[in-house]
Design a protein around this nucleic acid. Structure first.
Lengths: 103, 103
DNA sequence: TGGATTATATCGTAATCCGATATCGGTGAG
DNA sequence: CTCACCGATATCGGATTACGATATAATCCA
């Protein structure tokens, strides 16, 4: 994988968790579009296994529904997911102190 | 890999680059110690290949020396490395805006 | 019906993670 | 000088991940 991509691969996952927590429900295709507006691209071969892993880790729960003729899996955050996001926020704050402010 | 670890694996690499830029010269073992003080652990099987990759990507350059009886490889940032760090800073700023401030 | 569209899933190759183990060079005791 | 030890770096091997390509599924519309 390209080095710059390696730098931010983890952020994409935090981003997914963030939207699951704040937007209530997300779906794979929606996340892909949202990330694209931020300049990130995720191939389906990466995105869907990542969602499955977030679910298997207990951070997301999934519910399949059909709305407006679109069969989708709606992911939302679990309590553990919210806790993990809160913890990640703290880590990111430390990072910012070190990498941004002392720059 | 554990999900929380996945979240921040990339930041460990940014961290390495950051120290190469700001501390002038770093070595593998020194980075491992420094990361440990921030609560991160990196096994040698991850750290050294990562340093090699950062070098192969043109972000770090290496010079082998022996100081105080310790044979070490001293890594420092290249111009491309500094540029990549600056770019990463911008990305991190956006990250902070989205994940921290709108929290 | 069947072609187009949207969402999700999986396959295969390459690359990464990481603990364990090996190697390498220098030091100091004997 | 020799050799057991130590810090630093390197590599091995099995599991996991990345990701483009391809496949499957479900719905709409002509």
């Amino acid at each position: 994988m390209d080095m710059e991509r390696e730098f931010f691969a983890g952020f994409i996952k935090i981003h997914i968790l963030y939207h699951a927590v704040h937007d209530g429900e997300i779906c794979g295709a929606g996340i892909a579009r949202e990330l694209a507006t931020h300049g990130y691209t995720v191939s389906p071969g990466t995105l869907y296994p990542t969602l499955h892993r977030l679910e298997r880790s207990g951070y997301l729960k999934v519910e399949q529904r059909t709305e407006r003729g679109r069969r989708r899996k709606y992911y939302s955050a679990t309590a553990a997911g919210m806790k993990a996001l809160a913890k990640s926020r703290e880590r990111i704050k430390e990072l910012v102190e070190e990498v941004l402010e002392r720059g």
